[in-house]
Amino acid sequence: MRVCDDDTMQDALPDYVQGRCADETAAVVRAHLASCAACAEEAELIAHAGEVIARATPSIATTRILAAVDAARASARPATPAPASTVIRTRRWWASRPIMAAAASILVVVSLSVPTRRGTPAGTNPEVALERSMGADAPGRATTAPGAVTSVDLAGGLATLSSAQLEALLSELDALEGTVRAEPATIALPLIDTPELL
């Protein structure tokens, strides 16, 4: 197999064979090919290879491509925007921020209370135990207002509460039966008034 060491000429061959060279470059390559059998052979192979690929390529129906592009563009366009009220109605009631926050708080408190509850002697009424163990102004005392959920001063963290206080808190949570009693009075959902973003 013949070999040529002129890298510049070898790099120029594909463009020369396919007629992409400038006139001056083409003249230089042509002169080289006249005296270099290796490059002449390579140029012939490149020409054949280009022909093989061209013959193997099926003709393409550009009209079908354009139709597909148009269809894709049409489907990507936003349809008539839905009214804001429709959008709001489709929101799940439990996905509102206040309800999610309340649910998360309950989960945290309940999970922290489990070890304490496990340690309570059988048959002990937590509410009775709370009354027994807490004075009126005991820190962290649970207070219950009519119609309101028990609130406990957790400023010092759950670690400052006694077992009885935690039990009392747990009882209050049990009384909730695992659900939030009522919807918040108002749910502030953002109105979507920018249809172009839909």
């Binding site: 690929i53 061209a54 393409i60 079908r64 491509i65 597909a68 592009v69 894709a72 563009r73």
Partner: peptide, 29 residues
């Protein structure tokens, strides 16, 4: 289109050339 088709053929996908060229333009646009 023809250049893309030749390239697709060189990738060994002659039987699906038109489909793949079409997908290429749809994705490009």
């Amino acid at each position: 289109a023809t250049s893309v088709a030749r390239f697709v053929v060189s990738l060994g996908e002659r039987d699906r050339t038109e489909e793949l060229v079409q997908d290429t333009f749809v994705r490009a646009f």
